[in-house]
Simulated scan of single mutants.
Amino acid sequence: MSATARSRRTRTLTRIGALTAVAALAVGCTSNTPAEESNGGGDDGGTTAVSANDDPGETVTIGFSGPEADHGWLAAINSAAREEADKYEDIEFDIAEGTNDPSAQIAHIESFISKGVDAIVLLPTDGAALTEAATEAMQAGIPVVNVDREFSNEFAARVTILGDNYGMGVSAGTYACQLVEENDLGDAVIAEIAGIDSLPLTQDRSQGFEDALSECGQDVDRRVAAEFTVESGEAAASNLLQAANEIDIIWNHDDDQGVGVKAAFENADRDEFFFIGGAGSANAMRWIEAGEMEATVLYPPTQAADGVRLARLLAQDKGLSDLVQVEVPRRIVLNAPVVTADNVEQYMPLGFES
């Protein structure tokens, strides 16, 4: 990193209060005092909140079907789900082999229904393709927790847990605006390295970035797209650098492809810009600690782990004691905080290996 970039970085590593909230919703969090007995004036026989939801309860079987671990974030999804289940002695975890084949996942769900599991947690390869099978599970009385990729019918899931792709773009753009203001960059040259352009998640991230930049009178001057892989990241970043002699800020959507992006920066001997990443890999967090990267925007790899916690509560007929409405929510969207040198230690445990 050049002396100029290091000087910029020192002056600008301030916390964005609204964007550095805890990334993963603490769905298992409960009060330390016993819940009061119902006085009969409210819920008539429905689910009631309990204290100490993490205390052992009735043993339940949770079926889990996730993706093939061909990407660092996806591997983290699977491992986090398994690790969360292992924390509870009252969970019997039936985990299917990861796959990118919708037909295989349909077979997983059919198997779970046949076994009579108590709940299913599913990150679908294709939400639309898995909707019918998930609906069949719901109709069989098995609550389904849908993770990350939505079904095409809301009746296919009891709970949907999502990362915030649009929010990622907003977080990255808001942080870029802060950099522009604090460093008096004026009409800054801002570049974007997107993921696969045909995917709605990429479109949402780009739209959020554009919308946030417009709030401070900035826009995206250069944009290229990669494919969420190291090789494509390096190729896209190389093309970007060849097309632009001077760049002030670069946002890369995905920290896995960011390995290739960073290699392209090093090959071109370019470091005049602030480098912002996306997703929250362990590599990115180590680069932030080393002063080689400005920030990354988290896309929580805890979604399936949160799904396991919620599935356990649903199967045990428990609610969330930290909510006035004690039922488990139908929809949860996790935050997309900005991770900087100021707070990287807080988020390092969530970093996944690329």
Rank of each mutant, 00 (worst) to 15 (best):
F155H: 14
E132L: 09
A35R: 09
N100I: 00
G28M: 14
D86G: 06
P143K: 02
A128L: 15
N32Q: 13
N100S: 04
G17Q: 11
I95G: 03
I120D: 03
A76L: 09
P102Y: 01
F155Y: 07
I16D: 07
R11Q: 12
T61K: 01
E89H: 07
H108D: 13
D54G: 07
H71G: 00
G17F: 08
L123T: 12
D90A: 05
D43V: 15
S51I: 01
P102E: 01
L13T: 08
G57Q: 02
K115N: 11
L19F: 12
L19K: 06
A133L: 12
F93C: 04
A134E: 05
L25P: 11
S65F: 01
F93D: 04
I77Q: 15
N78F: 07
D43H: 13
F155N: 15
G116P: 05
L25S: 13
L19V: 09
H71F: 05
A107L: 07
I16Y: 01
V117K: 03
N146I: 14
A80N: 04
A85S: 10
G17A: 13
D94H: 10
A80R: 01
I91T: 03
V145G: 11
Y88P: 02
D55H: 07
L123C: 15
G72C: 02
P56M: 06
G42R: 15
D86R: 14
S114N: 09
T135D: 03
A107P: 09
S51Y: 07
E150K: 14
G72I: 00
H108E: 10
R15W: 04
S103I: 02
N153K: 14
A81W: 05
A137D: 12
N53W: 06
A23H: 11
S51A: 13
N146E: 14
T135N: 10
V50S: 08
E83C: 00
A26D: 15
V147F: 09
R15G: 08
E37R: 14
A80C: 00
A133D: 13
A107W: 08
V144A: 02
D126R: 03
